[in-house]
Design a protein around this nucleic acid. Structure first.
Lengths: 147, 147
DNA sequence: GTCAATGCAAATCGTTTGCATGAAC
DNA sequence: GTTCATGCAAACGATTTGCATTGAC
């Protein structure tokens, strides 16, 4: 385990204590899965990974959903709506970015365009909206699948 | 009924015939609903509207879903993923646009920013993706809900 | 008459909930 | 010991499917 990962776990402990809640192995496991993988995972994929990586633990799918909601609420992870592929989660240590998604093989490329971000803010302002989040996905075929 | 609406119905008849399929009242009703309303509707909202507007017809919810898939496939309508609000449909007579969505009252503002569109294409090209579609939603609070 | 399209009910998928039990504090 | 979190199974909402029937051609 890297130092960074332990930091996030410490952060979780702090938040849980501060909220007067209880620190459980299950929440730590769900967070660990997302910290140690760079992919975007669905709740079910996380559940399956837990069964592989922590075979001695007994974590129910409902607990995975509950842990994910909690972790998102306290901003330790993010969720992204991947259209027909449903909701996926990623850890929140990375900076904001959007996604380029191959509809054939599922490959995902992350990108960030400052100018687009600025223009989004401008559009919101023009329409008197206070933006809380945005979601932008470009769907298409990656180089390999386009042959 | 305006001339434009009848045009779209004619288009549907043409497509159905060309594909060797059958022209049914149900498909026409679903398309009519979307043509005559400027809102974004879910499958269930369309189903309920049919019961109100065409009380003598007997259209099942399954047929609504099947008609929507078909109409989207032949590009007469579009669907948009509205995050937690699910999938919604709109007719395809309008030009491409994105959405600004109020998470409180559900208000939707459509917008188009040429520069953003251009930059999206550029990002795709740089990553050797062939874009087929994109989805961009800005979520936030509208003026009224932000008070 | 043929074959696609329909209505209905059952099935499915992803997610949430109620509740009795177990674990953290 | 109290209270929160869990596992399990049942419930849920949205969508899909199987199948016998109907309707377009």
């Amino acid at each position: 385990m890297s130092t960074m990962n332990e930091d996030v776990i410490e952060e979780l402990k702090k938040i849980v204590k501060q909220k007067g809640l209880k620190y459980t192995e299950q929440r730590e496991i769900v967070l660990s899965i997302l910290i140690n993988i760079s992919e975007h995972l669905s709740a079910e994929e996380i559940y399956n990974l837990i069964k592989v990586k922590y075979p001695n633990s007994n974590v129910g799918i409902a607990t995975v959903y509950r842990a994910l909601s909690f972790l998102e609420e306290v901003q330790l992870i993010n969720s992204i709506e991947f259209g027909k592929d449903g909701k996926k989660y990623e850890n929140n240590t990375k900076t904001h970015h959007d996604h380029l998604i191959c509809t054939d093989c599922g490959k995902i490329v992350e990108f960030l365009d400052e100018e687009i971000e600025k223009r989004q803010d401008r559009i919101a302002k023009k329409n008197k909206f206070k933006i809380t989040s945005h979601s932008m996905q470009l769907y298409g075929l990656c180089e390999t699948c386009n042959k």
